[in-house]
Design a protein around this nucleic acid. Structure first.
Lengths: 97, 97
DNA sequence: ACAAGACATTGATGAGTATCGATGTCTGAG
DNA sequence: CTCAGACATCGATACTCATCAATGTCTTGT
């Protein structure tokens, strides 16, 4: 794998490489409609609301989730292209095992 | 995904979530016999030998690679079970996209 | 025994990060 | 307009990490 490709994919993995963000991502993916608002996610953790907000921001800035404000609530949704990039990484590189 | 599962997989991703370690892993996987010695890996980077040794240690402690000393050289090899754990993560969780 | 080479470990430093409490911003209800 | 609630941002703190130079540990060749 090229140095450039590694530099592109590593930030995606970095954003996912946290138990909280991994669960957040999983919850967003498995939620009805593939999206979830913060109020759905926060209660599942023993963490403060600003901390969850921080983790969601990390996922968003990595390009893993989209953000949409509807009324009082903010909904997060997985970005298929980012997920595909990761799947592609392990499908090609990981297939050599 | 469960809190326990997240706590198990996150360290694996964390170990891979670095451009240098991603390339190291890729080089090990694509090398002849699925293994490579440090002398094969170090020259590919513009980093000091201790730094490469450090990254290999991180991959090893995460359980992603095995280590074997043969003569003067140390060979690193990917652990199929760890790779499978990651593949499984994205095959199940990521399939929902 | 000695020297050289391959790799690991140590110690230090600067950069990044997870977390919280406090505070700010927006939206809908009354 | 005012108030309450949902979420983000800010500032601070403690912790982790990537990197290097220096040094240590083996192993092989002479």
């Amino acid at each position: 794998m090229s140095e450039e490709q590694a530099g592109q994919v590593a930030p995606l993995l970095k954003a996912l490489a946290d138990p909280v963000r991994l669960r957040l991502m999983s919850m967003v993916l498995s939620h009805h409609g593939g999206e979830a608002c913060v109020c759905d996610l926060t209660p599942a953790f023993d963490l403060s609301q600003p901390t969850i907000s921080h983790h969601l921001k990390v996922l968003h800035e990595a390009g893993l989730v989209d953000r949409e404000k509807r009324g009082v609530w903010v909904y997060y949704k997985a970005r298929p292209d980012a997920m595909a990039a990761i799947l592609n990484l392990f499908a090609t590189t990981g297939a050599a095992v």
